[in-house]
Each structure stands twice: as structure tokens, then as C-alpha cells.
Computed example of a mutant assay.
Amino acid sequence: MEPTSEQLLWMYEKMVEIREYEETMAKVYLEGKLPPKIQKGLAFDIGGGPVPGEMHLSAGQEPVAVGVCAHLRKEDTVVGSHRPHHFAIAKNVPLNPMTAEMFGKATGLGRGKGGHMHLFDPANKFSCSGIVGAGGPQACGAALAAKKLGKDWVAVAFFGEGAANQGAFHEALNLAALWRLPVIFVCEDNKYGISVEKSESTAIASNADRAAGYGMPGVLVERNSAIEVFKAAGEAVARARRGDGPTLIEVKTDRYFGHFQGDPETYRPKGEVNRLREHDPIKLLGETLRQLGVLNDALDKSLRDVVSLRVQAAYEFSRNSPYPEPAEALMHVFAE
């Protein structure tokens, strides 16, 4: 399945938006977290600044999100991982409440109580979790609901290669295959589970091979390419919609930032990120679109200007939004 010109432009714009969003967050997140100068006893303050808590950014991994979500409808469910922003943006979660949630503001998706690893948008059927490997069972639940309702909706579970070693991953694949659920399991292999290289934690080279043990197709996408992901996801989504059951896809992708912001990344070989950036998937997709006559300099500049305004507006909205009242601390926690 080849993407149309409209789908190619949509993927390119979303990738640009994700990158702009993540690079902006990388700067905003550090505000108030670093001491003005190195002093004894002063260290990185994870609770300081306008965005408290941990932060996991997805720059470099954009193709996985857009290549899959280009096939999805609003009624389809996406369950993301602890590194969720690219999935949320590709699933059209609105930037203003999404960003406000990370700022801990009352205008956030969860009124500022969840933070960046717990983004919930029922209107666009998106959720994510800070628990490694938790998305698979949740996606199975959404897929079972669609099947019971007689709908051709699908569910997608995104997760990292480290999550493929969790029991919940195997339980979810087994259940999805047993009940022929319309689920697409998408594994992002960015080579590292926190600081542990995949070769040191996983017995096989490709998690896609594990699909055979559950009687479902397993597809390995070896290039960090939105078009290659699009092709693999197109077959998997079509299979799920026609009632033929689940698919497992693994994508070789690249993580440009650390596991979390503030990660010293001492486990990475010197110069690794610079070498990865030489094959930036946004640049490569842009070059392909130019060769196809889908993109030119004027359209590229216009698209980037619109995206930049959209992203900056979300950050300004979040900075200027109010914090929740202290009395709200116990609201939405216990059932009445």
C-alpha cells in the first residue's frame, strides 16, 4: 500500500510538529532545574521549573507514530507508552490541553493531575501509561469492546523493545490471537531500554519473530522511515478491520534525547547521536516528497511556519493557565 500525496504531506507535517514540540519541551523543561552555576550540594532539581517531574521525549521516533496513525480513524484506539507525545500528536490530541497537563494546570487533559506519562483524551480515544508494557492488555480491552459492538474499529498498542520482555506483553499477544482481536502491536526498537542495550537484555534480534509463537504475522521494519512504517501498518490495520486478527510490528528507530531529560547518557558511544541525526527521518522524507513533486520550498516554509505558531501557542496557553485549586486534590480520585 503506497501513501497518497495527501497522506505523505500529513505525515511530513505531523513529524515536523512532533519535532518542534519535543525540542521546545527540551528547553522549557530545564527551566528552574539546573543551578545557576556548579556549586557543592546543588544538583538537578527534578521538581523545579514550570514542568515538574520526569520527561521522556521522542525526537527521532516520529516515523513510528505517523506511519501507523495515518491509517487510523477517530474511533480507533491508541494506547501509548511512557514516551507518548509523538503518538498523541499523531492521534490528533489537541496541543493546548495536552501541554497544560504537563505544566500541571487546571486546563490540562486531567486537570494537571496526571502529567506527561498519563495523558487521557477520550474524545480522540488516546491514553498512555508510565508502566512498562501496560498498553497491550488495555488495547486488547478496547479491541474486544469494538468486536462485541460489531464495529470495524481497531486498537493500537505502542511500546518499546524493553516492554517486549514483560509478562503483560506475552499475555496480551496470546489473548489477542486466541480471540482474533483487531489489535496492532507496535514495538519501537530504539536500541536502549533506559540504559541497557537490547543485545544485553533480549535473547533474539527481532521481537517481530515472537509473533510466530502466537500464530500472528510478525513484521520487521528495518528503516526509520515513515513510508516503510506506513506500508507495514496499512496491511496490519486492514487485516484487523476485516476480522483476521492481530499483527506484531517492530520498527528500528532512533532516540535523539536521553531516556529522560537529565540523563547523562554515559552508556552511549561517543558521537552516536550525531551519527544518527545524519539520517534524520524528517529530512529524508522531505527529500522524497520533493523528488515526487509533492513538496517545494514555499510549501515547506509555509507548513513549518504554521506548525511553529501552533506549538508556541500551546506553550503560551499552558504558561498562562491557572493551577488547580488545592481543594481539588481529592476530586476525581474516589467514586461518590
Rank of each mutant, 00 (worst) to 15 (best):
L181W: 04
T288C: 10
D297E: 15
P246H: 05
A212N: 08
A139I: 01
V132P: 00
E250M: 10
A106H: 02
S201C: 07
A88L: 11
F169I: 11
A168C: 09
A26F: 15
K147L: 03
E250Q: 11
K74S: 09
L34G: 03
K125P: 00
M25H: 14
E2H: 13
A155C: 02
D305Y: 06
G293C: 02
A313C: 05
P269R: 04
L57V: 07
C69K: 00
N165P: 03
Y267R: 08
S201N: 11
V183S: 05
R111Q: 13
R241M: 00
R19V: 09
L295I: 07
H332P: 03
R223W: 02
Y12P: 06
A106W: 01
N124G: 05
K14D: 05
V78D: 10
S302N: 12
A134M: 10
D297L: 08
K198V: 14
G245F: 04
P281V: 08
E101W: 07
K191A: 11
L284K: 12
N96T: 12
P326G: 10
N296M: 09
H170S: 01
V79E: 02
L303G: 04
V154P: 01
E325R: 14
E272F: 07
A208E: 02
K113Y: 13
T99Q: 03
F230G: 03
G108H: 08
L178M: 10
V237A: 04
K301D: 13
K301G: 00
M216G: 04
E200S: 13
Y12I: 10
V237E: 05
